[in-house]
C-alpha cells in the first residue's frame, strides 16, 4: 500500500513546484491519470526514493520511503533511470537486475519476448539503444518480474502497437499486490473500469474515483455541484459530470487535450 501525505516537490527553488500537497492512497489496482507534465512521474520518483519531497511524506506499507534501505520486493518500477547502472547490453542488465532486485529473469525475458524483444536482440543492444517502445517493454518487463508488493508503471502503454496494448492491459489485470499505472491516455478507463483512479493536474491530485465512473462522465467547464470530480487546469475550473452535457472523457483520447477544451 502506498500513501502520499501532503507531498510537495520542487526541483529548484526558483522553479514552480511540480507536486503541490498531494494526498492519495493506492491499494490494489490503481490508475493515475494526468496530462504530460502534471507530476505523475515525479510522484513515482518520490515513492521510489529518488526525489526527496520538499514537504510531506511518501509511505510504503506504512514506512517513510526516506528511511527505507535494502527492502527487497517492497517496490518495483519501470522508470528507465533506475536501469542505468552499467555500460552493458540489455540481456546482461536483465540478469544483473533480476539478481539485485530479487526478480525472475525468465519471467522478464518471457514478458519481453511477448512484446517483441528477443533474447538475441537484447544481447546486441544497450538499453539506451532500444527504441522508445522497446525500452518501455524492457523496463516494464523488469519491473513486473520482481513481483513486488507495490509496482509503479510509468506510461507502460506508450509507443506500443494496439495489439500489444491489449495484451499488456490483460496482463496487468492479473498482477498481484498494489499496482499503480500512470498514463495520459483515456482509453485505459474501459479495460480498467473497476480500478481506483486519481486525476492529477499541475501537481494536484483529485480523487479517488472508480475508473468506470470517469468513463461515464463528461467534461464541462466550471464548477458543478454533485460532479464526480472538480479540478483546476491552467487557472480554469473543470468538472466531470454525469448526463448529456459536455464531452466524454474518452473522446479526448489524451488528457493533454483538457487544455484545448479550456480554450475559447
Amino acid at each position: 500500500m502506498l500513501r502520499a501525505e501532503n507531498l510537495s516537490v520542487q526541483y529548484r527553488w526558483r522553479q514552480e513546484p511540480v507536486l503541490r500537497g498531494v494526498n492519495a492512497e493506492f491499494e490494489g489496482r490503481c490508475l493515475l491519470l494526468g496530462p504530460n507534465g502534471s507530476g505523475k512521474t515525479t510522484l513515482f520518483r518520490v515513492f521510489s526514493g529518488l526525489t526527496p519531497p520538499k514537504t510531506g511524506k511518501a509511505l510504503i506499507d506504512g514506512e517513510d520511503v526516506t528511511k527505507i534501505f535494502g527492502r527487497v520486493g517492497a517496490l518495483a518500477t519501470n522508470l528507465p533511470e533506475v536501469y542505468n547502472l552499467f555500460f552493458l547490453n540489455a540481456y546482461d542488465h536483465v540478469v544483473a537486475y533480476s539478481d539485485i532486485l530479487g526478480g525472475d529473469p525468465d519471467r522478464a525475458f518471457e514478458f519481453m519476448e511477448r512484446l517483441g524483444l528477443m533474447r538475441d536482440y537484447l544481447r546486441k543492444r544497450k538499453p539506451w539503444e532500444l527504441s522508445g517502445g522497446q525500452r518501455k517493454a524492457f523496463t516494464t518487463g523488469l519491473a513486473l518480474s520482481v513481483r513486488a508488493r507495490n509496482t509503479l508503471l510509468d506510461e507502460p502503454f506508450e509507443q506500443l502497437d494496439p495489439a500489444k496494448k491489449a495484451w499488456l492491459a490483460e496482463k496487468l489485470s492479473s498482477v498481484e499486490g498494489t499496482l499503480v499505472v500512470n498514463t495520459h491516455e483515456t482509453w485505459v478507463l474501459k479495460p480498467f473500469r473497476d480500478w481506483v483512479t486519481y486525476l492529477i493536474f499541475e501537481g494536484r491530485a483529485y480523487g479517488p474515483v472508480k475508473a468506470g465512473d470517469l468513463l461515464e462522465s463528461r467534461l464541462v467547464k466550471g464548477r458543478v455541484e454533485d460532479a464526480v470530480i472538480t479540478f483546476e487546469a491552467s487557472g480554469k475550473v473543470f468538472s466531470l459530470v454525469r448526463g448529456e452535457e459536455g464531452s466524454p472523457l474518452t473522446e479526448l483520447v489524451t488528457l493533454d487535450r483538457v487544455y484545448e477544451a479550456g480554450m475559447g
Binding site: G49, I68, R71, T77, I100, A148
Partner: peptide, 8 residues
Amino acid sequence: RFITKFGR
C-alpha cells in the same frame, strides 16, 4: 539510489 532501497 533505487537498488540501495529496494534491492539486495
